[in-house]
Design a protein around this nucleic acid. Structure first.
Length: 287
DNA sequence: ATTCCATGATCAG
DNA sequence: TGATCCTGGAATC
Protein backbone atom coordinates (compact mmCIF):
# COMPACT_ATOMS: atom_id res chain seq x y z
CA UNK A 1 0.00 0.00 0.00
CA UNK A 2 2.53 2.57 0.96
CA UNK A 3 3.47 5.37 -1.39
CA UNK A 4 3.48 8.94 -0.14
CA UNK A 5 -0.27 9.41 -0.45
CA UNK A 6 -0.83 6.51 1.98
CA UNK A 7 1.45 8.04 4.58
CA UNK A 8 -0.10 11.49 4.36
CA UNK A 9 -3.50 9.89 4.69
CA UNK A 10 -2.29 8.00 7.76
CA UNK A 11 -1.06 11.25 9.31
CA UNK A 12 -4.56 12.72 8.89
CA UNK A 13 -6.13 9.55 10.24
CA UNK A 14 -3.96 9.68 13.37
CA UNK A 15 -4.75 13.34 13.93
CA UNK A 16 -8.49 12.87 13.69
CA UNK A 17 -8.41 10.02 16.19
CA UNK A 18 -5.65 10.84 18.65
CA UNK A 19 -4.43 14.41 18.38
CA UNK A 20 -4.66 16.52 21.52
CA UNK A 21 -5.31 13.77 24.02
CA UNK A 22 -3.46 11.11 25.98
CA UNK A 23 -2.84 7.83 24.19
CA UNK A 24 -2.09 4.40 25.50
CA UNK A 25 0.84 2.76 23.72
CA UNK A 26 2.05 -0.82 23.81
CA UNK A 27 4.10 -3.22 21.73
CA UNK A 28 2.44 -6.64 21.87
CA UNK A 29 5.17 -8.02 19.63
CA UNK A 30 7.81 -6.63 21.98
CA UNK A 31 10.15 -5.11 19.41
CA UNK A 32 9.12 -1.57 20.36
CA UNK A 33 8.38 -2.23 24.03
CA UNK A 34 10.84 0.37 25.30
CA UNK A 35 9.61 3.15 23.04
CA UNK A 36 5.96 2.33 23.63
CA UNK A 37 6.50 2.49 27.40
CA UNK A 38 8.06 5.94 27.06
CA UNK A 39 5.14 7.48 25.18
CA UNK A 40 2.41 5.52 26.97
CA UNK A 41 -0.05 7.97 28.51
CA UNK A 42 1.41 11.03 26.79
CA UNK A 43 -0.50 13.45 24.62
CA UNK A 44 -0.21 13.06 20.85
CA UNK A 45 0.60 16.60 19.75
CA UNK A 46 0.43 16.12 16.00
CA UNK A 47 1.07 13.70 13.16
CA UNK A 48 3.04 14.59 10.08
CA UNK A 49 4.29 12.98 6.88
CA UNK A 50 7.23 13.65 4.60
CA UNK A 51 7.39 11.30 1.65
CA UNK A 52 6.99 7.77 3.01
CA UNK A 53 7.98 8.75 6.56
CA UNK A 54 5.36 9.17 9.27
CA UNK A 55 6.04 11.15 12.44
CA UNK A 56 3.81 11.00 15.51
CA UNK A 57 4.51 13.70 18.11
CA UNK A 58 4.22 12.95 21.83
CA UNK A 59 4.63 14.93 25.02
CA UNK A 60 5.10 18.67 25.38
CA UNK A 61 4.46 20.73 22.26
CA UNK A 62 7.61 21.22 20.17
CA UNK A 63 9.48 24.36 21.14
CA UNK A 64 9.56 27.09 18.53
CA UNK A 65 12.39 29.57 18.25
CA UNK A 66 10.22 32.19 19.97
CA UNK A 67 9.55 30.08 23.02
CA UNK A 68 11.79 29.95 26.06
CA UNK A 69 13.66 26.65 26.32
CA UNK A 70 11.62 23.84 27.84
CA UNK A 71 12.73 23.35 31.40
CA UNK A 72 13.19 19.68 32.19
CA UNK A 73 11.69 16.29 32.09
CA UNK A 74 9.68 14.97 29.19
CA UNK A 75 10.90 16.66 26.08
CA UNK A 76 8.76 16.37 23.02
CA UNK A 77 9.55 13.16 21.15
CA UNK A 78 8.58 11.63 17.86
CA UNK A 79 7.67 8.10 16.93
CA UNK A 80 9.20 7.66 13.50
CA UNK A 81 7.47 5.06 11.32
CA UNK A 82 8.38 3.78 7.88
CA UNK A 83 6.17 1.02 6.51
CA UNK A 84 8.67 -0.28 3.99
CA UNK A 85 7.28 -2.57 1.36
CA UNK A 86 4.70 -4.44 3.43
CA UNK A 87 4.09 -2.59 6.64
CA UNK A 88 0.49 -1.82 7.48
CA UNK A 89 -1.44 0.43 9.81
CA UNK A 90 -4.98 -0.58 10.62
CA UNK A 91 -7.56 1.43 12.56
CA UNK A 92 -10.57 0.33 14.52
CA UNK A 93 -13.08 1.64 17.01
CA UNK A 94 -12.98 0.90 20.72
CA UNK A 95 -13.10 -1.54 22.34
CA UNK A 96 -9.89 -2.83 20.78
CA UNK A 97 -9.71 -6.60 20.35
CA UNK A 98 -6.74 -8.48 21.79
CA UNK A 99 -3.77 -7.70 19.54
CA UNK A 100 -2.16 -10.43 17.49
CA UNK A 101 1.49 -11.16 18.12
CA UNK A 102 2.70 -9.30 15.04
CA UNK A 103 1.48 -5.91 16.26
CA UNK A 104 4.61 -3.80 16.67
CA UNK A 105 2.76 -0.84 18.14
CA UNK A 106 -0.78 -0.41 19.35
CA UNK A 107 -2.10 3.07 20.10
CA UNK A 108 -5.47 3.43 21.77
CA UNK A 109 -7.73 5.96 23.43
CA UNK A 110 -11.31 5.82 24.63
CA UNK A 111 -12.77 5.71 21.13
CA UNK A 112 -10.20 4.27 18.70
CA UNK A 113 -7.12 2.13 18.26
CA UNK A 114 -4.39 1.76 15.65
CA UNK A 115 -2.26 -1.34 15.03
CA UNK A 116 1.10 -1.16 13.29
CA UNK A 117 2.51 -4.33 11.71
CA UNK A 118 5.60 -5.10 9.71
CA UNK A 119 7.21 -1.68 9.52
CA UNK A 120 10.78 -1.37 8.39
CA UNK A 121 11.21 1.39 10.98
CA UNK A 122 9.46 2.19 14.25
CA UNK A 123 11.68 4.22 16.55
CA UNK A 124 11.55 6.96 19.13
CA UNK A 125 13.56 9.96 17.93
CA UNK A 126 14.33 13.52 18.99
CA UNK A 127 13.53 16.74 17.20
CA UNK A 128 17.11 16.90 15.92
CA UNK A 129 16.96 13.39 14.58
CA UNK A 130 13.69 14.23 12.85
CA UNK A 131 15.28 17.29 11.28
CA UNK A 132 18.07 15.10 9.94
CA UNK A 133 15.52 12.88 8.21
CA UNK A 134 13.84 15.88 6.58
CA UNK A 135 17.24 17.08 5.42
CA UNK A 136 17.96 13.92 3.49
CA UNK A 137 14.56 13.85 1.78
CA UNK A 138 13.71 15.73 -1.39
CA UNK A 139 10.64 17.90 -1.88
CA UNK A 140 7.32 16.14 -1.43
CA UNK A 141 4.45 16.92 -3.82
CA UNK A 142 2.09 16.59 -0.86
CA UNK A 143 3.85 18.98 1.49
CA UNK A 144 2.42 22.48 1.28
CA UNK A 145 5.16 24.89 0.29
CA UNK A 146 7.36 22.30 -1.38
CA UNK A 147 8.05 22.75 -5.05
CA UNK A 148 9.96 20.84 -7.70
CA UNK A 149 12.82 23.24 -8.16
CA UNK A 150 15.30 21.41 -5.94
CA UNK A 151 14.44 18.16 -7.65
CA UNK A 152 14.95 19.74 -11.07
CA UNK A 153 18.40 20.97 -10.11
CA UNK A 154 19.51 17.39 -9.58
CA UNK A 155 17.53 15.75 -12.36
CA UNK A 156 18.71 18.21 -14.99
CA UNK A 157 22.34 17.40 -14.18
CA UNK A 158 22.02 13.63 -13.96
CA UNK A 159 22.77 10.94 -16.49
CA UNK A 160 20.66 8.49 -14.48
CA UNK A 161 17.37 7.41 -16.03
CA UNK A 162 14.32 9.39 -15.05
CA UNK A 163 12.69 6.15 -13.87
CA UNK A 164 15.47 5.62 -11.32
CA UNK A 165 15.54 9.29 -10.31
CA UNK A 166 11.82 9.28 -9.53
CA UNK A 167 12.32 6.51 -6.97
CA UNK A 168 15.24 8.28 -5.31
CA UNK A 169 13.76 9.80 -2.15
CA UNK A 170 16.64 12.27 -1.85
CA UNK A 171 15.50 13.81 -5.12
CA UNK A 172 11.72 13.64 -4.73
CA UNK A 173 9.97 12.24 -1.66
CA UNK A 174 6.87 10.07 -1.76
CA UNK A 175 6.86 8.68 -5.30
CA UNK A 176 6.83 4.89 -5.45
CA UNK A 177 6.68 2.25 -8.13
CA UNK A 178 3.08 2.93 -9.16
CA UNK A 179 3.25 6.71 -9.43
CA UNK A 180 6.60 6.48 -11.22
CA UNK A 181 5.23 4.23 -13.94
CA UNK A 182 1.96 6.08 -14.27
CA UNK A 183 3.26 9.64 -14.33
CA UNK A 184 5.84 8.77 -16.98
CA UNK A 185 3.11 7.23 -19.09
CA UNK A 186 0.83 10.24 -18.66
CA UNK A 187 3.62 12.49 -19.94
CA UNK A 188 4.67 10.14 -22.74
CA UNK A 189 8.22 9.96 -21.39
CA UNK A 190 10.51 7.01 -22.04
CA UNK A 191 11.51 5.72 -18.58
CA UNK A 192 15.07 5.16 -19.76
CA UNK A 193 15.61 8.76 -20.76
CA UNK A 194 18.46 10.35 -18.75
CA UNK A 195 17.33 13.03 -16.33
CA UNK A 196 19.41 15.68 -18.05
CA UNK A 197 17.57 15.07 -21.31
CA UNK A 198 14.26 16.22 -19.84
CA UNK A 199 13.17 19.76 -20.49
CA UNK A 200 12.22 22.10 -17.70
CA UNK A 201 8.73 22.24 -19.17
CA UNK A 202 8.42 18.46 -19.03
CA UNK A 203 9.59 18.35 -15.41
CA UNK A 204 7.25 21.15 -14.33
CA UNK A 205 4.35 19.25 -15.87
CA UNK A 206 5.38 16.02 -14.13
CA UNK A 207 5.67 17.76 -10.77
CA UNK A 208 2.29 19.48 -11.16
CA UNK A 209 0.72 16.19 -12.16
CA UNK A 210 2.18 14.42 -9.11
CA UNK A 211 0.77 17.16 -6.88
CA UNK A 212 -2.64 16.51 -8.42
CA UNK A 213 -2.50 12.70 -8.57
CA UNK A 214 -1.12 12.23 -5.08
CA UNK A 215 -3.65 14.64 -3.53
CA UNK A 216 -6.37 12.58 -5.19
CA UNK A 217 -4.64 9.52 -3.77
CA UNK A 218 -4.94 10.94 -0.24
CA UNK A 219 -8.61 11.80 -0.79
CA UNK A 220 -9.58 8.37 -2.09
CA UNK A 221 -6.89 6.37 -0.24
CA UNK A 222 -6.13 4.77 -3.57
CA UNK A 223 -4.05 5.35 -6.67
CA UNK A 224 -6.12 6.36 -9.69
CA UNK A 225 -4.26 7.69 -12.68
CA UNK A 226 -6.52 7.16 -15.69
CA UNK A 227 -7.98 10.30 -17.25
CA UNK A 228 -11.78 10.45 -17.51
CA UNK A 229 -11.80 9.85 -21.25
CA UNK A 230 -9.88 6.59 -20.80
CA UNK A 231 -11.97 5.14 -17.98
CA UNK A 232 -13.67 1.80 -18.61
CA UNK A 233 -17.12 3.41 -18.82
CA UNK A 234 -15.92 6.04 -21.27
CA UNK A 235 -14.20 3.49 -23.51
CA UNK A 236 -16.59 0.61 -23.09
CA UNK A 237 -13.85 -1.69 -21.81
CA UNK A 238 -14.01 -3.97 -18.77
CA UNK A 239 -12.78 -2.49 -15.48
CA UNK A 240 -9.59 -3.65 -13.84
CA UNK A 241 -9.99 -7.04 -12.20
CA UNK A 242 -7.32 -7.15 -9.53
CA UNK A 243 -7.89 -5.33 -6.28
CA UNK A 244 -4.71 -3.34 -6.06
CA UNK A 245 -6.65 -0.15 -6.33
CA UNK A 246 -7.86 2.16 -9.01
CA UNK A 247 -7.54 2.30 -12.74
CA UNK A 248 -4.02 2.56 -14.10
CA UNK A 249 -2.43 2.75 -17.54
CA UNK A 250 0.63 0.52 -17.24
CA UNK A 251 1.41 -0.58 -13.66
CA UNK A 252 1.26 -4.39 -13.49
CA UNK A 253 -0.27 -4.53 -16.95
CA UNK A 254 2.66 -6.29 -18.62
CA UNK A 255 1.73 -7.97 -21.92
CA UNK A 256 -1.73 -6.41 -21.91
CA UNK A 257 -2.90 -3.89 -24.46
CA UNK A 258 -2.34 -0.19 -23.91
CA UNK A 259 -5.60 1.67 -23.25
CA UNK A 260 -4.59 4.38 -25.71
CA UNK A 261 -2.55 2.85 -28.55
CA UNK A 262 -3.38 -0.82 -28.11
CA UNK A 263 0.28 -1.80 -28.13
CA UNK A 264 1.71 -4.29 -25.67
CA UNK A 265 2.76 -2.97 -22.26
CA UNK A 266 6.31 -3.96 -21.42
CA UNK A 267 8.05 -4.72 -18.14
CA UNK A 268 11.68 -4.82 -17.04
CA UNK A 269 13.70 -4.52 -13.87
CA UNK A 270 14.99 -1.06 -13.04
CA UNK A 271 16.39 0.19 -9.74
CA UNK A 272 15.54 -3.19 -8.17
CA UNK A 273 11.85 -2.82 -9.00
CA UNK A 274 9.57 -3.84 -11.80
CA UNK A 275 9.14 -1.10 -14.34
CA UNK A 276 6.14 -0.92 -16.67
CA UNK A 277 5.72 1.23 -19.75
CA UNK A 278 4.19 1.44 -23.20
CA UNK A 279 6.83 1.73 -25.92
CA UNK A 280 4.24 3.10 -28.33
CA UNK A 281 3.12 5.95 -26.11
CA UNK A 282 6.51 6.56 -24.49
CA UNK A 283 8.88 6.46 -27.47
CA UNK A 284 12.62 6.65 -27.00
CA UNK A 285 14.47 9.57 -28.53
CA UNK A 286 15.82 7.37 -31.31
CA UNK A 287 12.51 5.79 -32.18
C1' DA B 1 2.46 -27.29 2.94
C1' DT B 2 5.35 -24.48 0.48
C1' DT B 3 6.86 -20.89 -2.45
C1' DC B 4 6.40 -16.53 -4.41
C1' DC B 5 5.55 -11.93 -4.62
C1' DA B 6 4.52 -7.00 -3.29
C1' DT B 7 3.02 0.50 -3.90
C1' DG B 8 10.57 0.05 0.25
C1' DA B 9 15.17 0.83 1.56
C1' DT B 10 19.84 -0.27 3.29
C1' DC B 11 24.11 -2.43 3.35
C1' DA B 12 28.15 -5.24 1.71
C1' DG B 13 31.24 -6.19 -1.89
C1' DT C 1 24.11 -6.35 -8.31
C1' DG C 2 22.67 -9.31 -4.41
C1' DA C 3 21.41 -10.32 0.36
C1' DT C 4 18.69 -8.80 3.87
C1' DC C 5 14.80 -7.04 6.93
C1' DC C 6 9.73 -6.67 7.77
C1' DT C 7 4.28 -9.48 6.83
C1' DG C 8 0.48 -11.55 4.56
C1' DG C 9 -2.12 -13.00 0.62
C1' DA C 10 -2.09 -15.53 -3.64
C1' DA C 11 -0.31 -18.99 -6.39
C1' DT C 12 1.57 -23.45 -6.67
C1' DC C 13 2.81 -28.08 -5.22
Amino acid sequence: MPEGHTIHRLALDHRSRFEGGPVRASSPQGKFAGGAALVDGQVMTTAEAHGKHLFLGFGLPPATSDDPPQSTGDAHRWVHIHLGLFGKLGFGTAPAPPPTDTVRLRLANASAYADLRGPTTCALITEDEKDAIHDRLGPDPLRPGDDGTRAWQRISRSRTTIAALLLDQKIIAGVGNVYRAEVLFRHRIDPYRPGRDLTRTEWDAIWADLVFLMAEGVRHNRIDTVRPEHLPEAMGRPPRVDDHGGEVYVYRRAHLGCHICGGEIRTAGLAARNLFWCPGCQPSAGG
